[in-house]
Design a protein around this nucleic acid. Structure first.
Length: 494
RNA sequence: GGCGCCAUCGUCUAUCGGUUAGGACAUCGCCCUUUCAAGGCGGAAAGACGGGUUCGAUUCCCGUUGGCGCUACCA
């Protein structure tokens, strides 16, 4: 049987290095065995999924140098590859489960479920659906449906016995069925949850091996149950350790740059990023050259060698690999080409020229004026952020608001960015010109520069987020309490 | 709280019961060099704790502690 793997990102935000990591592992395994690698978009969460995010994810993975044999953009024999276009399929399989009695309709309200969980937790028990709707007979279900009561489809789970999940790297993991929740499979909007869609798609797309994040371990029993109910053979599951922040918490953008685009903006070579990620999955042992290309990564890939501890994403090591790639794997001409592609493309230079030309007297003024566009971390001190009419607290609050607001922005364009900043000044009850200075310093490294919103657009979301985060850190990282209070105020006005 | 996963230098890791616990990044020192990098050489740096099993545990088992994940009509 042909090996087929997949990566199934959810388009709910910026492309994450964790996605690249999981994609790389699946890619390597498939290619190592002459198999196929598929890209599937899991966009069943209508509230959070966006087309922008999907496009960005495809773009980032392509930039990484990972090519998929089937996917929403290239098509393939098992399409569609976007779950939002497969609703009918999931409904059909949910109906099958309903018919066989392996799933049941549930009419419970969110309020009842909430109260139930609160009570269970207060009693020190695990939170699990109590099975009320499971007791309804066909007539009762029909009556409620006819009355127009909204309902979901839940998975029937055994009340006792154990489930053994076979993990490709950890071996058997045992769960009590009584600790597994009766998961919702089909939401009241008719769309499936991850669990149903994932199992159905992996089967229909003939996926043979799944490498996914460790966060899925605890829901694996539900997936095993679905394969059993459907009478399907489950793919071989292997859970990958989660990438961590330096403080060992799960890698998060609150504490670190996590976007693939951030590393691209900073001038990392995709080869080096992949190299680094590949080393995390299969570390090089003594005497082994660590600088390797994708083909080499594929050739030496071995799932049995994946370490189980969650590795800290060590940017220092990435820097070293990237430096070596730049100076050992590229000649001058190729280097120049990289520079052009990175930040000096004709289109980008034209935009920059239009902004810079009115502000220079000599071409040599360009260096200091535009350095921030070609820099990673800016050398700024806390005092440079001060000096306006605002108190530190207000500046910090403004920076935090900007972080939150900019995250919510769908389109990264001057117009939206401008509206965001105007809004922030209003909320704080101050004039924008008074908050402008710290933002200029945080973003461009100087209180005077090209227009702020253009600078922000040019820099891109990930770099801007990082600069704001660094500036905020300079004036004092907000405490949990401050953050909560600000968040309340922020929510209140929006 | 419950369930699950994990546990060696600051970081990534090697060790399939017996090693001076090895390598890489970072760090420190020296060399090279008009500077800075790069490069070369060298140094410092680790088995969470407590019980077992064993002639012998970093390695196997149990417990504790710690970290992480899950605990949604999000993935």
């Amino acid at each position: 049987m042909k090996v087929r793997t997949r990566v199934a990102p959810s388009p709910t935000g910026d492309p994450h290095v964790g996605t690249a990591y999981v994609a790389l592992v699946n890619y390597c395994f498939a290619k190592r065995h002459g198999g196929e690698f598929i890209l599937r978009i899991e966009d069943t969460d209508r509230a959070r999924s966006t087309a922008e995010s999907e496009a960005a994810i495809l773009d980032s993975l392509r930039w990484c140098g990972l090519h998929w044999d089937e996917g929403p953009d290239v098509g393939g024999p098992h399409g569609p590859y976007r779950q939002s276009e497969r609703s009918a399929i999931y409904r059909e399989y949910a109906a099958r489960l309903l018919a066989s009695g392996d799933a049941f309709r549930c009419f419970c309200t969110p309020e009842r479920l909430d109260a139930m969980r609160v009570a269970q937790r207060a009693a020190g028990q695990l939170t699990r659906y109590d099975g009320l709707c499971r007791t309804y007979d066909a007539a009762e279900v029909a009556r409620r449906e006819a009355a127009g009561e909204p309902s979901v489809v839940r998975l029937r789970v055994p009340d006792d016995g154990t489930c053994i999940v076979e993990d490709g790297r950890r071996g058997p993991i045992e769960f009590e069925w009584s600790s597994v929740d009766m998961q919702v499979l089909l939401k009241s909007d008719g769309l499936p949850t991850y669990h149903l869609a994932n199992v159905v798609d992996d089967h229909l797309m003939e996926i043979t091996h799944v490498f996914r994040g460790e966060e899925w371990v605890s829901s694996a029993p539900k997936h095993m149950l679905l394969y059993r109910y459907f009478g399907w053979t489950a793919p071989k599951l292997t859970h990958l350790p989660l990438l961590r922040n330096p403080d060992k918490s799960k890698l998060s953008k609150r504490k670190n740059p996590t976007g693939i685009l951030f590393y691209r903006s900073l001038g990392y070579a995709p080869e080096a990023l992949l190299n680094f990620l590949g080393l995390l999955a299969n570390p090089a042992h003594e005497g082994v050259e660590e600088l390797m290309d994708l083909a080499h990564l594929v050739e030496r890939f071995d799932p049995a060698q994946i370490p189980l501890g969650g590795p800290v994403f060590d940017v220092g090591k990435l820097d070293w690999l990237n430096g070596r790639f730049l100076r050992e794997r590229l000649d001058d001409a190729q280097f120049v080409e990289r520079v052009r592609a990175w930040g000096a493309s004709p289109e980008r230079m034209r935009k920059i020229a239009a902004l810079a030309r009115p502000r220079v007297e000599r071409l040599s003024d360009l260096g200091p004026l535009l350095a921030f566009l070609f820099a990673g971390r800016l050398a700024i001190a806390a005092d440079q952020l001060r000096g306006g009419k605002l108190e530190d607290r207000q500046v910090r609050q403004a920076l935090q608001y900007a972080l939150w607001e900019l995250d919510r922005l769908d389109e990264w364009r001057v117009s939206g960015i401008e509206a965001t900043f105007v809004g922030i000044a209003q909320r704080l009850g101050v004039k924008f010109r008074d908050v402008a200075r710290p933002f200029y310093v945080a973003i461009t490294g100087s209180p005077t520069s090209i227009p702020l919103y253009d600078a922000i657009e040019l820099l891109g979301r990930d770099v801007v987020r990082e600069r704001l985060r660094v500036a905020l850190g300079l004036l004092g990282v907000p405490s949990k309490r401050e953050l909560d209070a600000w968040f309340e105020e922020w929510k209140g006005v929006s």
